[in-house]
């Protein structure tokens, strides 16, 4: 969905979100919105700007929930950004979101366009809960590129992706594996309200993935390592 179509549905009472290129931010009622559009590449400058907005919200509006609306094709592929340590900038955004969480800000992620690889890692995946629209695209890599890198025939990958959630693109796979909590359809404002009312609790994605049958080992193996105190 285009952001211009999405915002009125999420905020029927209006908003004060301001756009600057592929970045946008601003308040909508009691919610602070931070996002990107047009499949933005997450580079050092963009992630630094998003982190700055998170810190500003913590200072100026303590406790205000944060909604991340990130449409991204992934991290920016740039020699200059890598030279100044792009991962430190994306890690900084993660630290700022966690800082906000620690100060009582609820953090909700909604994938409304694309969420790819490190662009997803640095945004909605760090939320207390991540949701998606039905037409959202979530992936690490498309199958033809995956076939080239792994040297596994494309036909084989396509065939396996019918029965396995583990590698192929698709929001339904991320739901099965517990990373996407649910799909928002119909009254999106009501969906947002319900999500904000839920108790965030700890990281429950492994448990969800196990219950939904998409990720059957992660919870058990991590629990074995955590509890193997003998």
């Amino acid at each position: 969905m285009k952001i211009d179509d999405l915002l009125p549905q999420l905020f029927p009472n209006g908003h004060d979100i301001a756009f600057d290129g592929d970045y946008f931010a601003g308040p909508a009622g009691d919610v602070a919105v931070i996002g990107t559009r047009d499949r933005a590449a997450i580079g050092a400058a963009l992630s630094h700007r998003m982190a700055g907005e998170v810190l500003r919200i913590c200072r100026d509006h303590p406790g205000r929930p944060i909604l991340l609306l990130v449409d991204t094709l992934g991290q920016k592929m740039s020699r200059r950004d890598e030279t100044i340590c792009l991962n430190a900038y994306i890690a900084h955004l993660a630290k700022c979101l966690d800082h906000a969480r620690g100060r009582g800000h609820r953090i909700i992620g909604l994938v409304y366009g694309e969420a790819v690889s490190a662009g997803f890692l640095s945004s909605s995946m760090l939320a207390d809960a991540c949701y998606a629209l039905p037409e959202a695209e979530v992936k690490v890599m498309n199958l033809p590129a995956m076939s080239r890198v792994t040297k596994i025939p494309l036909e084989r990958l396509e065939e396996l992706s019918q029965s396995s959630a583990v590698f192929a693109p698709g929001v339904e796979n991320y739901i099965a594996m517990g990373a996407v909590r649910g799909i928002w359809e119909g009254d999106l404002a009501a969906c947002l309200e319900r999500a904000l009312a839920e108790d965030p609790g700890p990281d429950t994605r492994r448990t969800l993935g196990e219950q939904r049958g998409g990720r059957t080992l992660a919870r058990r193996v991590s629990a074995d390592v955590r509890g193997d105190a003998a």
Binding site: K95, S117, V149, F167, G178, A179, R206
Partner: peptide
């Protein structure tokens, strides 16, 4: 992320990130 199990790997990395942040 291991491409052969790309979705599981990506989610696992984000769980590692959350766990590190909790330790910090």
């Amino acid at each position: 992320v291991r491409l052969h199990e790309a979705n599981a790997g990506l989610i696992a990395v984000s769980e590692i990130m959350r766990a590190i942040l909790a330790l910090r």
